[in-house]
Structures are given as C-alpha cells and as structure tokens.
Design a protein around this nucleic acid. Structure first.
Lengths: 126, 126
DNA sequence: GTTATATTAAACCTTATGGTTTACTATATG
DNA sequence: CATATAGTAAACCATAAGGTTTAATATAAC
C-alpha cells in the first residue's frame, strides 16, 4: 500500500517531511517534479549519482508522502504531492511572528487562512 | 566563533535547518524557546533523556542558526533565532501553489508560468 | 525467443545521528 | 577550602543515511 501514510503521532509525519527536505538532492527532485511528473530515469538523469541512489531518494520522498508513483508496465511515473508541505508550513507558521516583517506576513497569513477555511475574519490583535 | 554560520552553498543552510527540524525533540525545544529563553538545564528538564543528549540537540539547533546562546558564568542561556526559519518558509513558498484549494493559486501559477516559459498552456492532469 | 530497457533488491561501505555513561572543567556557594 | 551546580567532552554503541556495485525482475521491442 504505502499510498498516503497515516501516522499515529502527527509529529511523526513532520519528522519524515522535514527530514526528507533536509537533503539537497531531494529538494532538487521536488523542484523538478514541480514542473511535471516524470519517470525515474528522467528524474535521475541530471544527477551525478547512480540510478539506485536516486531511487532511494524517491522512496524517502514517497514515504514522506511528497511523491506519488504510478506504475505502468516497467515505467514508474512520479508526481509531486505537496500536501505534506502544507503541514510543514503550518508548523513554521507559528514562528512567523519571530522573524520580522511580521505585519505583512501576519496579514498574509490571516487572509489565506480566511479564504481557506471560510471562517469569519478574526481581528488581528497585537 | 560559530555565531552566524555563513555557508558557501545557500542550500547547505537549508540542509541544516530542515534536518534540524526533522526531529521531534528539537522541534519541542524550539517550541519551548519560543516562549522565552532558558538555560540548558531548564530546557532539558521536560525530556526523558540525559542532559548531554539535550545538549547535543541544542548544538544541532545552534549550528542551524536557530538557537543563540550566551554564556554567563556557568550558565548557558539559549534563545530562539527564527531567521533561518524564514529561509525555510521561503523555500516552501514555491510550493504553496500546489496545495491549495488552489483556484487562485493555480491561476497564479499558470499565469506566472506562461510568462516565464512562453509555453503553450499544458493540461492540468489529475 | 532474444535482447534491451526501466527499475528495484541486495550486499556492502562509510559517515552521521541519537542516545548512553563516565569523566572533566568551571563557576557558585556554604 | 570543600562541595554542589551547570555544562561540555570523550568514549562508546546501535541504527540510520547516503552512496556504490552487482544481481535480479519484469516489461517492451526486434
């Protein structure tokens, strides 16, 4: 199965996602995938690294839920699934307050949140 | 020195930050620090883990630039520095487009993409 | 049916991680 | 001075990560 891993601890998911992002190669793979799905060989081509190595990276991304693959015959087509990144960003959002041009950022956040959840606009207190 | 690590590759910084975030304990430490600075013993107290272990986690966070410490006598006071998180969020921001109830976002993306690549509109496969 | 292609599996290596315990150092405090 | 306190250092251990190479597997193409 392995399609969308659901974890007991919600944090476990964050572990997987952040750790998956903690590698340049994997971030590049995601970057590539953000422009469209691709088969493993295609994905591996730009890297100075063996195919199995890239395969492993893809599995890490898959386990983090960031990549979905569809097997058709002998070709595995990989596609980006960004939803876990949203969880990551949600976690980061708590810290936005601490890094600066906070008024804009906060407004931004509120706006997005309001749109996303169809919630009555809250006051920005502070 | 070690105060603010500057890395040759900007990506190296992202590696450190994301990897630092990829551990529950360290995220909890950041959470604690987000409510105010604290000395190492205080930080270690809630964890079922030896003091040196927490010390190591703190050093990981420090190397990622997420924690700053000021030594006064024998006590090391640790404080959150969230600026690297901003970098992380900036990276993530590129993917916001992919996780939304994305009509706006998608439109946004398509517009930007069209401008950027002068490419014929692709199908949104799903 | 044979060969080429796409991909994983397995075995292996090296270094990193996350934890422990047992020193050790330095600063407070009685 | 003697001792408690705050913290790191060092040595050690098990497992995970990131890579390699050499099979092995399955599908496609000739």
């Amino acid at each position: 199965m392995l399609s969308t891993p659901v974890h007991k601890h919600p944090d476990e998911n964050l572990d997987l996602v952040f750790r998956a992002l903690g590698d340049r190669t994997r971030r590049q793979l995601l970057g590539r995938l953000s422009q469209g799905s691709a088969m493993v060989t295609e994905l591996a081509e730009p890297f100075d690294m063996s195919l199995p190595a890239v395969g492993k990276h893809l599995r890490v991304l898959e386990k983090a839920g960031l990549v979905k693959r569809t097997i058709t015959g002998r070709v595995h087509r990989c596609a980006l699934d960004a939803t876990p990144l949203r969880t990551a960003e949600d976690w980061l959002a708590h810290y936005r307050v601490f890094w600066g041009e906070t008024l804009d950022a906060l407004e931004d956040y509120v706006r997005k949140d309001a749109v996303g959840k169809k919630r009555t606009r809250r006051k920005v207190r502070k």
